[in-house]
């Protein structure tokens, strides 16, 4: 589409200008500043900061735990969304509202709450402790915190898609001889796959950027339970702005690559399935 193409809605020039300005001012400019700050470092210095064992450990935890949390949320978010969409039961509206709670809660509150429950002597922690399972101050706790705060993203992405899957589709599959499981695998799953990926992306993106809730439950042991955002804050506290910026650039790049990959995957899926839509 060319810029000159006449549009039904007037004011394209104005809105496009605004969009560009808005994006630049609050997204691109700060990111550019970040890259510039890191760019003022010498290359070898940059490499030394971003590939220190402590930094590598934090990447592993940040991205690994985020991916795990997003996966958990896609699976259980599906079940949750399914229940909310398909069944009518007392308290359905209440549960529907509860799902948004992690959106609204200051993340530090979530972290404190989780720590209270899962610490060694917490309500649940005390029963897990004899089994040798330690949640608080381990990577398990980090994953738990990330799962909690990214849960609404997965559920909310899936809900509209599941509403689209009409009962008739399952009924049709059943009269054609398909078992419940076959219908789920061949009909429902492919239909909601794009939304499943969107849910994963949103949950993952949210988890990677999370800071507040994790620092309470993680214990922040270098190499073990230290997430990258925390490492950045540590650099900042030592007035090492350039080191912080360097780590920030790496996070930015990695997040961008992951999100781009998922988006491409989705676009590919869309082309394959819905390219037809007039």
């Amino acid at each position: 589409m060319s810029f000159r193409r006449p549009s039904v809605l007037p004011g394209f020039g104005l809105t496009f200008g605004f969009t560009t300005f808005f994006l630049s001012a609050i997204v691109l400019l700060p990111l550019a500043a970040l890259v510039l700050a890191a760019g003022s470092m010498h290359w070898s210095e940059f490499v030394a900061v971003v590939s220190s064992p402590r930094a590598l450990g934090s990447y592993r935890l940040s991205f690994g735990a985020s991916a795990l949390a997003a996966t958990i949320n896609v699976v259980f978010g599906f079940v949750l969304a399914w229940t909310l969409v398909r069944y009518e039961f007392p308290g359905r509206k209440l549960i529907d509202a509860l799902i948004d709670l992690p959106f609204a809660l200051p993340t530090a509150v979530s972290g404190i709450a989780l720590t209270t429950v899962f610490a060694q002597h917490g309500w649940i922690g005390r029963y897990l402790d004899p089994l040798g399972i330690k949640v608080a101050y381990t990577w398990l706790g980090v994953t738990l915190a990330l799962t909690l705060i990214s849960m609404p993203f997965a559920v909310r992405a899936l809900q509209p898609a599941l509403l689209e899957v009409q009962r008739d589709l399952e009924d049709a599959a059943e009269t054609l001889g398909a078992t419940r499981f076959y219908a789920f695998r061949r009909i429902i799953l492919p239909t909601v796959l794009p939304s499943l990926l969107t849910g994963f992306t949103l949950a993952f993106a949210r988890a990677v950027g999370e800071y507040g809730s994790v620092i309470f439950i993680a214990g922040n042991l270098p190499m073990k339970t230290e997430i990258t955002p925390l490492l950045i804050v540590i650099h900042l506290e030592q007035f090492d702005y350039r080191g912080a910026a360097a780590l920030g650039v790496v996070m930015l790049a990695m997040s961008f690559v992951v999100l781009l990959a998922i988006n491409l995957l989705q676009a590919w899926g869309r082309r394959r399935h819905v390219q037809a839509a007039h």
Binding site: Q166, D171, A172, T175, L176
Partner: peptide
């Protein structure tokens, strides 16, 4: 239903 050997056509097509 899947063992009844019937074919069912819906009002809204219900195509996959």
């Amino acid at each position: 239903a899947r063992k009844r050997g019937v074919g069912l056509v819906f009002q809204n097509y219900a195509l996959f």
